[in-house]
Nucleic acid binder design. Structure first.
Lengths: 249, 249
DNA sequence: AGCGCCCCTTGACACTGATCAAGTGGAACG
DNA sequence: CGTTCCACTTGATCAGTGTCAAGGGGCGCT
């Protein structure tokens, strides 16, 4: 299916400055750094990181049921995770932006419980889970980071779980995207929706038509400007206010 | 508020059979046992377990915002976790039966992100988290168990997150309760709903009236028999079938 | 026993959002 | 340059569920 060579290459373990920058999106580097920049530990960490990609739009990173071996940090692009029910209806579990981790929900079953697909050009850092777990027994900073990341994800369901209105869900979704982009140094007020309206709908448990209508209403009231997939938050404060119930700000 | 003496007492570290049975509901004992029943390790584990309780109905175990120090396994009774929004509306995050762990979602923030309250007489095993994390660096079985438990909880949101009908949600809820009771050796077809209709509603994101109506409909069609809070699954197979979309069986 | 409280049930109605259906517009392609 | 396809938009209708209102019944309290 893919003609692009996607040979995983082991990253050289040299811990020069360049190598560190290169891995800055990987969640664990910071754990090491927080821990006092121990060269030996950084060395151990980096040799078990594998940079993979690029995956092209529509290309799958893993599929439901495949044996679990690694978690991965997104370096570039957007990843969508989803499951499909018998009737072919898709439930989107999440979108993962640069710096975020996929595969954490696979640990408990040793199999991926969902599919992961690239929504645009995607590059990853793969971490062999058995190896990083072993390393975590020797480097408490890594273990803590893993515990924290896992625990964070437990609480993430709030956007979906509440009985919120379509407008609350969608505004909260946009605010969340904005914050996540901002946290990675991208613009908080102007970014691309890398996912289709249908994807958003399947994520927020709405109909695609409803997503479309709410976006229009938000645009008409001057809160956002949306041109195809390009989004501008023209009144971020008001947007946050509309989402306040969901975000419990 | 409470007149009942609830002095936490450190459990004696003697790893005699009695002590082990006493702790059989604690999730970590099994991790140790799986790991080859190493007496020294069991010793280490047990001295950091604190048995607390009894908590009486309505008594809080922890409250939102309190500093996080420990996770806890339910030994007896039912615990409800919830948050309250500005308008006073309650969102129930989960019910925890004997053998299940509360507090896992507090790890990432070092504070409890929700309230936990006893729905009936509750007894707990408290595990100091810093201590168990330290122990985990030396006992891989413990670390794996922790990772697995955390990862499991990430996927647990499915019941709430899907856009399912009231009937699907409620039947799935009942099936889940049944399975959880069965897993702990209780009857799978006859048990008490320790939570109020309102609690169930706030958990499933339904109105209490809807819960009431669906229960009645299920009873009228012969799937369950419900008398106040006593529930009998008269046709478990059909109940599971009604819940099949949610449970993805 | 009797009272009152609270949980639960039942009914009537309104409203949000899904569904069905049709139409628009951009992008890729021949 | 026209065709086709697909994502998206817009409109009309309808069903499921929330809301409001009233009533029932167990349980603890005095």
């Amino acid at each position: 299916m893919s003609a692009v060579p996607r040979t995983p290459r082991r990253v050289a373990a040299a811990d020069d400055g360049d190598e560190l920058r290169f891995c800055s999106t990987c969640a664990f580097s910071s754990a090491c750094l927080d821990n006092g920049y121990d060269k030996a530990k950084l060395h151990e960490l980096h040799i078990l990181v594998e940079h993979t990609g690029p995956y092209r739009e529509g290309e799958h990173i893993f599929r439901e049921g495949e044996p679990f071996g690694a978690i991965a940090a997104v370096r570039a692009g957007t990843v969508k995770t989803y499951v499909t029910d018998r009737d072919g209806r898709e439930t989107v579990l999440g979108f993962f932006l640069p710096g975020e981790l996929i595969g954490l929900n696979a640990i408990s079953q040793d199999r991926y419980p969902c599919n992961a697909v690239a929504l645009d050009g995607v590059a990853l850092c793969r971490f062999s889970f058995p190896m990083i777990a072993t390393l975590a027994t020797r480097v408490p900073g890594i273990q803590q980071q893993l515990f924290r990341l896992l625990s964070e994800d437990i609480g993430k369901a709030s956007l979906l779980s509440g009985d919120y209105s379509a407008e609350e869900r969608l505004t909260a979704f946009l605010v969340t995207l904005s914050r996540r982009y901002a946290a990675r140094g991208f613009s908080a007020t102007r970014f691309n929706l890398t996912m289709s309206r249908t994807d958003i709908a399947n994520y927020l448990r709405l109909a695609a038509e409803t997503v479309s209508r709410v976006l229009r209403r938000l645009q008409d009231s001057g809160v956002i400007a949306v041109e195809r997939r390009e989004l501008t938050l023209t009144d971020p404060a008001r947007l946050e206010d509309l989402a306040r119930h969901v975000l419990r700000a």
